[in-house]
């Protein structure tokens, strides 16, 4: 796809407060370096993330979206991550069916102790999106009036 190696994708990530956001914080306190392409929106639970946010982010210009929550059984709110898992599995399959490469819609379980895993996830997501190139086809038309 995109042969342009300069392409730096822009990825919007939704992180649950209790596990993944804490895991990303831990990566920070551990000074683990990772690509700066991912920008984070903090929500209390991955269950809060409406799958239509994925569509919205892609439309607003993101090249990829990541949703990250607690591992199964660890959700601070008991089941929020289970609901998220169902919703995103369906949405991801559906977007793939429309031609949105699955590399652009990712989900991960990152616990508060997995700073190192957070880095791995970011690298995986960023490299995956680099492979498929910029997502310009769905971008919202800029209004100039």
């Amino acid at each position: 796809m995109a042969e342009n190696s300069d392409f730096e994708p822009n990825i919007v990530a939704f992180l649950c407060n209790w596990c993944s956001y804490a895991g990303a914080d831990l990566a920070g306190t551990s000074r683990i370096q990772y690509p700066s392409n991912v920008r984070v929106i903090r929500v209390m639970c991955s269950g809060r993330v409406n799958p239509l946010f994925v569509m919205n982010a892609l439309q607003e210009g993101a090249d990829g979206v990541l949703i990250s929550g607690c591992h199964p059984g660890d959700c601070h709110y008991m089941h929020g991550n289970y609901y998220a898992r169902r919703r995103f599995n369906l949405m991801r399959n559906f977007l793939e069916y429309l031609g949105v490469e699955p590399q652009r819609v990712r989900m991960s379980w990152v616990s508060a102790s997995e700073g190192a895993k957070w880095k791995e996830v970011i690298e995986e997501v960023v490299n995956g999106v680099k492979e498929v190139g910029p997502m310009d086809q769905f971008k919202r038309r800029q209004l100039n009036w």
Binding site: R39, R48, P51, A84
Partner: peptide, 30 residues
């Protein structure tokens, strides 16, 4: 937790401080 807000088809239930209209400008900015 806000799991209800993500499930509501009519957007009628919202989580305070994490409402759609609070999160969507963030999505746009990022």
């Amino acid at each position: 937790c806000g799991a209800c807000a993500a499930a509501c088809l009519s957007g009628s239930i919202q989580q305070r401080s994490f409402k759609d209209l609070q999160l969507m400008p963030q999505i746009k900015a990022l």
